[in-house]
Simulated assay, not measured.
Amino acid sequence: MTASVHRHAIPEGPDAEQFAERLGTRVARRIDSLEESAGMIDFAFNSSLLALRARCVIDPRAAAVETWEATVNAMQVGSALFAVTGVSEGTVECRINRKLRTLPAVGLLPTADAGNWLTAFWLAVICRDQTRMTQLCEIPLDRLRSPEGQYDEYVYHWVDVLQTYWLQRPGLVDKLIATIEASNPEVVQVAPRDLLQGVLYPPINLFYHFVRKDEAGFSPALADALKLHKAYWTLNEDRKADIDGTIALGPLAIACLAHDGEIPIEVESDYLPKHLLTRGWLGKFPT
C-alpha cells in the first residue's frame, strides 16, 4: 500500500507565480554576470535554490518545464561553485542555463564547504548528472572543512560516505557506521537537536536502508523522513512560512537513488516532486 505524506500548507499569496517568475529572471541575470566575475557565485547558488523552491510551491509535482529548468540551473550553479573555487588562476568552463560559459577562477571561498557540497550533490543526484556527481565526489574532504567549525564532525563523515559510495572506494560500511555514531544527538554539539532529527539525520538513515537494498524497510523509512521534515517545518509560524520547507531535498535525492536502483517507492508526497523522483524530464535538454 502506498503511503501519503501531505505537504504542509505553504502561504502562496496572490502572486506566487509572478514571484517565481521574478526569481527566475533574477537567477538568469546573476548567472550571466558570472562570466565577468564569479566572486558572488555562492549568492547565485542561493538564489537558484530559492527559485527552485518557489517553482515547487506552485508546481508541487514538477510537471512544468520551468520547474525542471530551475532544478537544472540550481544543480549547474552548485557544481560551478566548487569548480571555480577549486582553482585560483585561469578560467573554468561550465554549462549553466543552456549555455557553455567561461567563468573566471575564484580560489577558496568559505561557502564552498561541506553543507553546500551536500546540497550540490543532492541536486546532481536528482538531475541524474553522473559526471557532476563524480566531479563533486573527487573533491578532497579537507577542502570542504569550514575553518570556523561551522559543522559537526559527522557531516564530514557523511560526505566521505557519499564519495566512497559513488566512487566505489573501500570501507563504505565502516564509514557509514562511523557517520551514524557521530550523528547521535548526545554527540552532536553544533546542530540544534530539532534540525538534526528532523532534517539532517533522516537522509543518513535512508541511505542505510538503500545500501542494504532493504526493499521492505525503505519506504517506511522514507515516510518517516518526510513526517519528520514536516514536523520540523511546521513547529511555528515562521517555519511554516519559510519556502525552504517546500521540498525535502536530501530524502528526495536518496529516493532517486533507490528508484533508479529498482527499489519500490511506496510513498507519495509533494515533498518529493513526482517528475523529479521518476526522472520524467531527463534528456529533454542538455544539463
Rank of each mutant, 00 (worst) to 15 (best):
L172F: 03
Y165K: 11
E89M: 00
V5Q: 06
E215F: 01
V84Y: 04
G90H: 04
D15K: 06
D59Q: 03
K213D: 13
T2S: 12
A178S: 14
A120W: 01
D142K: 10
A112H: 12
T85G: 06
T85W: 10
R26K: 14
S48V: 01
E138M: 14
S88K: 11
D238V: 07
A44T: 15
S269P: 13
F285I: 01
I243H: 13
L34P: 08
A51K: 01
E21G: 02
H229C: 05
C127K: 08
D32R: 15
Y201K: 09
H259D: 12
Y165L: 10
K99S: 10
G217C: 09
P140V: 07
A20C: 05
G39C: 05
M75H: 10
T102E: 15
D194M: 12
L196M: 00
R26A: 15
M75R: 15
V211C: 11
E93Y: 00
S37H: 15
P170S: 12
E153L: 02
I180A: 04
R55L: 02
R55Y: 04
D113E: 13
A182Q: 08
L23Q: 14
M40A: 15
Y156F: 12
V199M: 07
E12D: 14
S48I: 00
D242H: 11
A70L: 11
A191K: 04
G171M: 12
E215Q: 11
A225W: 05
R143S: 12
A255G: 04
I126F: 04
E36H: 13
F218L: 10
L109M: 13
L200W: 03
V57E: 09
